[in-house]
Design a binder for these strands. Structure first.
Lengths: 216, 216
DNA sequence: CACTTTACTGTCCGATCGGTCAGGATGCTG
DNA sequence: CAGCATCCTGACCGATCGGACAGTAAAGTG
């Protein structure tokens, strides 16, 4: 039953919080877009913060599951993790935009605080599992870059002509996988030049397949 | 003369706009941190928006110069551009955080509107100069990822132990350069697997040098 | 000295915000 | 029918915000 009034409000609030910020969006504007009064919004959600929490919680839980799935790294070269993460980014660009831009200021809101912890945990996993600073930078660039790319695409979408999502998805999977693949020190010159990276360990079908991988 | 009251205000405002958002920061809180009254802030800057504009303008102009320098792509494989961009990202993380998180909502403010145009122009250059969607995704991931990485590092800095900036700088330069280097279709398998990337064209000293490249 | 400029302040104002509250309409249930 | 829960509303309140304005203290400047 995803078509209730409460879900409409969550959806609308999510978009407004993402575009104009939590402080910038007002209960009145959310109510207006939903075609109801401010009082009605406060009937469904006890407060503005409760609305934000509800709007963001599903994405946070999904992200939690994805990061849980990251721990056993190895075997398939993060292929499952990357696919799940890319799907997540493509589906929850608005929430990511909120985490990135306002996570610091809104950390006292339950779900956002949890999202911050997830980011820190992911950073901790990277610190523990990736020996070099360059590797960790690549890790952060890959994940953060994907998040930013989707957020920016959302922001500037009306200007540029649309690119099929599947194409973006596979490009993201390929690029992230490449960035996550460790660079063997042997193939780097003394000056630090990257001379080669090892081939992707993911099978060629993995980023050609039209169906997304589901994480939750 | 960068130590005037007006510059203090710009600095304080920039940090608050970045962390709690433009709508979330108040002239009162900025005045308080500056040790003066709200009226005094409005004496130096005609309005809150004017303060934002002044706080962000130097970074926008620097970014403008950097992007101008991108147009003649080729020769050194974007090495100059990448070095300048990385320096910019490291120096102006707060402004980038504002552009990323609030550029959409604050586009009516002059400098931020110009920043948005710069992003669109950069995207346009990528669209025109990079034939494949994957290449454009890599381009966006490289630049956006670097920006996000620095912004996130700023946000979560107090938790993690500091990494020398030079190390991050060189890692960013290496990774971005690699992402910007086109993937010759020849060395890719039929399934799309990346089998190799061409070596960096930048000399090995370029990302080992302790002095940053200056763009303006 | 008088005069002007610079830097700054307290007070006030209208607007907007999040949130409370009492009540209206509708529909289900006995 | 009465009784009750669900959904929604307008009116209202205190707080906060950006900003206008008159005025003041200090520092030049003739």
């Amino acid at each position: 039953m995803p078509n209730t009034t409460a879900d409409d409000l969550r959806r609308i609030a999510l978009e407004q919080f993402s575009t104009v910020g939590f402080a910038g969006a007002s209960l009145g504007s959310i109510a207006e877009e939903a075609g109801m009064s401010k009082s009605s919004v406060l009937y469904h959600y006890a407060s503005k913060e409760a609305l934000l929490d509800a709007a963001v919680t599903p994405a946070v839980e999904k992200l939690h599951a994805i990061i849980d799935g990251f721990a056993p790294a190895g075997e398939d070269g993060h292929a499952t993790f990357v696919a799940a993460f890319v799907d997540f980014v493509l589906e929850h660009g608005a929430e990511l935009h909120i985490f990135i831009g306002q996570g610091q200021a809104l950390g006292n809101v339950g779900a956002i605080g949890r999202a911050n912890q997830l980011v820190e945990r992911l950073a901790g996993l990277a610190d523990a599992g990736i020996p070099t600073v360059e590797g960790r930078v690549r890790f952060g660039m890959a994940l953060g870059g994907a998040a930013y790319l989707v957020a920016a695409t959302r922001a500037f979408a009306p200007t540029t002509d649309p690119v099929p999502e599947e194409e973006i998805r596979s490009a993201l999977v390929v690029s992230i996988t490449q960035l996550l693949a460790p660079i063997p020190p042997a193939v780097r010159s003394a000056g630090g030049e990257v001379l080669a990276v090892r081939p992707l360990s993911a099978p060629s079908e993995s980023h050609t397949s039209p169906e997304p991988a589901h994480a939750g």
